[in-house]
Amino acid sequence: MPFPLRIALRTIVSLLAISLVAFIVIAAMPSDPVAIAIRTWNLPATDQTVAALRAQWGLDLPLAQRYLAWLTRFLGGNWGTSFRTGEPVLSEFARRLPLSLLIGLSGLALALVAAVPLGFAAALNPRGLADRATRVLAVFVQAVPSIWLGLILIWVLGVHFRLIRPFGHDAGSLVLPILLIGLHSTAVLARVYRRDLIHVTTQPFFRTALAKGNSRSAALWRHGHGHAVYALLSAFRAEAGWAIGSTAAIEVLFGLPGISQFLVESIAARDYAVLQAYVMVVALWLILMNAIVEGALHWLDPRT
């Protein structure tokens, strides 16, 4: 099967699988949406109202039929209505998604751009300054959660030195969130990239490249970079998933009106239409990132 077709097929299958899981799990939840709606909208809790609502939402149909109906509606852009805000879920998401995408993608892009020179410098001179610095950074980000680091930075920069306006809502206030999201991935990716470059230096072909008169940095760039970028991209896939969690925490910390902030507000209200849509949006993000990385890996090494 040709590569693009294979990727497209796998993407569709994964999406269908996740949509099935999302639907079943949320349908299996113990709290009844009808009961919640009756409470939220102050309807009379008679058998008649319950039956009417169940019929209106198709809850009396078999599960398979409900799934198909939900999937059809979802694909058609009808994502249901939020209990809490009374607005269509799709437009709620459309309004909030750009901000979440902006900080998440900027953080990841920052990490990719920073990890290559940092990891290269670390591999060029093992036990040198860059190697030690990236090592300390990796140990640091694995212990200090980004929320606490964010709080420390808000205190140091915003309260102590008054350099930034904490919890502000201008373009400048996005710099700190993006840096916080990018820092973890920068450390992880730089170490992965360095590890693979170091591995290349133990290979016979690297010794040959040095023997031909290349400097260490030229040999490493010409013969090591390709290998290491491969590992870098594979690790990037995991970081794309990680970025969702850290974006969520950072949005809540800085009070940024993104989709995760919306999700946290919706969970307390058991707003299931929003939960389902969130699961699907996140799954779409991950599967698309995955497809992009696989495409890039295939481009680097067509044997895969």
């Binding site: 699988a17 995991a238 998933g241 999700l263 969970i267 939960l275 699961v279 799954a283 599967i287």
Partner: peptide, 17 residues
């Protein structure tokens, strides 16, 4: 495939159920 599903989603559904 399961590696792709983010922790946040699993935790969210588990907390809700």
């Amino acid at each position: 495939t399961s590696i792709v599903i983010p922790t946040l989603i699993i935790a969210l559904t588990a907390a809700a159920i």
